[in-house]
Design a protein around this nucleic acid. Structure first.
Ligand SMILES: [Zn+2]
Ligand SMILES: [Zn+2]
Ligand SMILES: [Zn+2]
Ligand SMILES: [Zn+2]
Lengths: 154, 154
DNA sequence: CAGTTCACGATATAGCGTATCGTTCATGGC
DNA sequence: GCCATGAACGATACGCTATATCGTGAACTG
């Protein structure tokens, strides 16, 4: 992510928090920035290490977890449950309402793409689930894939 | 799961392994039995604890992991990646070929149902993914739901 | 400027998973 | 039966992920 887009996205995040009456502190901003700049999702402990390198001050893992919880509550960050890692939302600077997040995770290079899957597919899925006697609550889907580059290389 | 069905399923698993030229040892049988009898998915360490209670002998966590790896390779057990827990395949006693597994996990009671989602839905999903420039490799989907009972109670 | 809430730090502890090496045990050819 | 081979299993060590709890200090509020 280039500098201009990074700055714009961080500004948008700050605005988002102001609108929600929450505080976008320096540390929260730094953690979000690290995730925005990373090519791959990061674990909480990796973030703590990167924080040290990038900003020259240590941060306890505990704080990282708390900050991630905050950022997730604001839908600025998503957790990839199948990998126990975290990734910045790709739609922070978008105007539209945040949809149900769906993630395509490259098995080889860990690259992640956040896509909006056709609502009709989600609806069909929800329908199947209803028929099985269950009720969908958080339809976040994580799919293991190969990205174009890794697919070509294999 | 009642005793008769349990026994039948374990016999079918043993047969399955014989056909594949692999050994269905006592310990492997015991681990599978614990998963078959459990209402909820279990972690490797939970299995080690239950093993002690059920069979009166301790088993190292390492062995549990190895046995789970074996049972997964035989598609007798599935791992729920989003929970780091394991569940017995619900189709061991079925005759049909094992499909791509899809899991509905109750957020409240942890009950898990293994369903076969409409191939057409999977195909539509794969199509969307291709359009995003990715290639689906392991289309196991885990969905967070509420089961009928927990849904009614809420 | 006093009171309340929120952010953050420090420490401890539990749970999940892998690496490595050594031992035991089943199996098949002799 | 006996040994060679490989598979299954045990023991130990280590690293990563996550939560619980208590305390301190900063920030907002009236
Ligand atoms: Zn998002
Ligand atoms: Zn890739
Ligand atoms: Zn199955
Ligand atoms: Zn339930």
């Amino acid at each position: 992510m280039n500098k201009a887009k990074l700055k714009k996205t961080l500004n948008r995040a700050e605005e988002h928090c102001r609108e929600h009456g929450t505080r976008f502190t320096e540390k929260r901003k730094h953690i979000l920035q690290l995730l925005l700049q990373s090519e791959v999702p990061l674990s909480a402990y990796e973030l703590a290490t990167h924080y040290q390198s990038a900003f020259g001050e240590t941060i306890p893992a505990m704080s990282v977890y708390r900050i991630l919880d905050f950022l997730m509550a604001e839908t600025l960050v998503h957790k990839l449950n199948s990998a126990n890692k975290y990734t910045a939302c790709e739609h922070i600077a978008c105007d539209h309402q945040h949809e149900v997040p769906q993630f395509l995770i490259c098995e080889r290079c860990q690259n992640v793409k956040e896509v909006g899957i056709e609502p009709s597919i989600i609806a069909a899925l929800a329908d199947e689930i209803e028929r099985a006697g269950y009720h969908l609550t958080q339809p976040q889907i994580e799919l293991h894939c190969l990205c174009e580059r890794c697919f070509s290389a294999s």
